[in-house]
């Protein structure tokens, strides 16, 4: 059961990442490339503080750091009027050096043998199977963040942010300050992404500077796969699909891993194919419906 439970766990951890990407990608419609950098920042902060003996503080500070990274991108986009994609790239590039600095100019920190959130929970609840315990902890984080974001986006501030992403022209000429809403949205998104990185570090037992490479793609894939899930549209359900999409994506990878039909180097191709097929379902359905109509009209 290790693989199945492990996939669920990974799905929940990267679900936090997906929640962050959901905010910038689906609510704000802004392409934000800060993710690779802010994820690693969260990872680095969490690892450094955990190895110093403060795993929980590490997670809090990681979230703050992520928010700061997001605020930087937001600032570049709004006040300095740099194109959104470039703003994200600038922050992400700068963060590479900052992350190395945070890690003390090492590219790898080990947490094997130092107290982490998970090891602390294990010593407290040693009567529970460790895999199950980790799943519960991760569920707590995922559901907690989901609840918090759902609440936030139903407040006035959250509504203003959603409106900014929906019809910027309208919001610009209303009394809402779109500079503020954009910066807050991007900060919040990257805080979630950094949280994901922080938990990954303590989950996998080490922090490596390359851990954030390709994280943006993983987040986007999770969000887009989540769109396939048939739930009634709404703020709460939207966020839920991000988490579920992440879990489904991990299950797809697990499936790809278990098949021995393909050589090792084909892993990414296989997972890309699986994702591609899943995403082509809407187009397939349209085509089949069209064929049906044509048939009946003959």
């Amino acid at each position: 059961m290790t693989l199945f439970l492990g996939s669920l766990q990974l799905g929940l951890i990267y679900g936090l990442l997906a929640l962050g990407i959901y905010i910038t990608f689906k609510i704000m419609h802004i392409p934000d490339l800060t993710a690779d950098g802010s994820f690693t920042l969260g990872l680095a902060v969490s690892a450094v503080l955990a190895s110093a003996g403060y795993p929980v503080v590490g997670i809090f500070l990681a979230v703050l750091a992520g928010a700061l990274a997001g605020a930087t991108t937001g600032f570049l986009q709004t006040k300095i009027a740099i194109h959104p994609i470039l703003s994200g790239i600038i922050t992400m590039s700068g963060l590479y050096s900052i992350n190395l600095y945070v890690m003390g100019a090492r590219s790898n920190i080990t947490l094997i043998g130092t107290p982490t959130l998970f090891s602390m929970a294990r010593s407290r609840f040693d009567f529970v199977d460790f895999n199950l315990l980790r799943l519960v902890i991760l569920l707590f984080f995922a559901l907690g963040l989901w609840g918090a974001l759902t609440w936030f986006f139903k407040t006035h501030l959250g509504l203003s942010i959603r409106a900014t992403g929906d019809n910027e022209a309208m919001v610009k000429s209303s009394s809402i300050n779109i500079t503020a809403t954009k910066i807050i949205a991007i900060s919040l998104a990257n805080a979630c992404i950094a949280l994901s990185g922080a938990i990954v570090a303590q989950y996998q037992g080490f922090a490596d500077i390359s851990s954030g490479v390709g994280i943006m793609v993983i987040g986007l894939a999770s969000v887009i796969i989540g769109e396939l899930i048939p739930l009634r549209k709404g703020v709460a359900n939207g966020f839920l699909t991000a988490i579920l999409g992440s879990i489904l994506y991990r299950l797809m990878i697990a499936l790809a891993l278990q098949s021995n039909l393909f050589p090792a180097y084909a892993l990414k191709l296989i997972s890309a194919l699986i994702v591609g097929i899943a995403l082509s379902l809407p187009a397939l359905r349209h085509y089949l419906a069209f064929r049906k109509i044509r048939k009946e009209s003959v």
């Binding site: 407040t155 006035h156 509504l159 959603r162 309208m170």
Partner: peptide, 28 residues
């Protein structure tokens, strides 16, 4: 230009209504 298409009618009205309010973290 005047309304946000993916928000509901009551959400659009709440947006406009909140101009006179000072509490950003209240449920809209």
């Amino acid at each position: 230009k005047g309304t946000a298409p993916n928000l509901t009618l009551e959400e659009n009205l709440a947006l406009a209504y909140s101009r006179s309010q000072k509490k950003p973290l209240q449920i809209a």
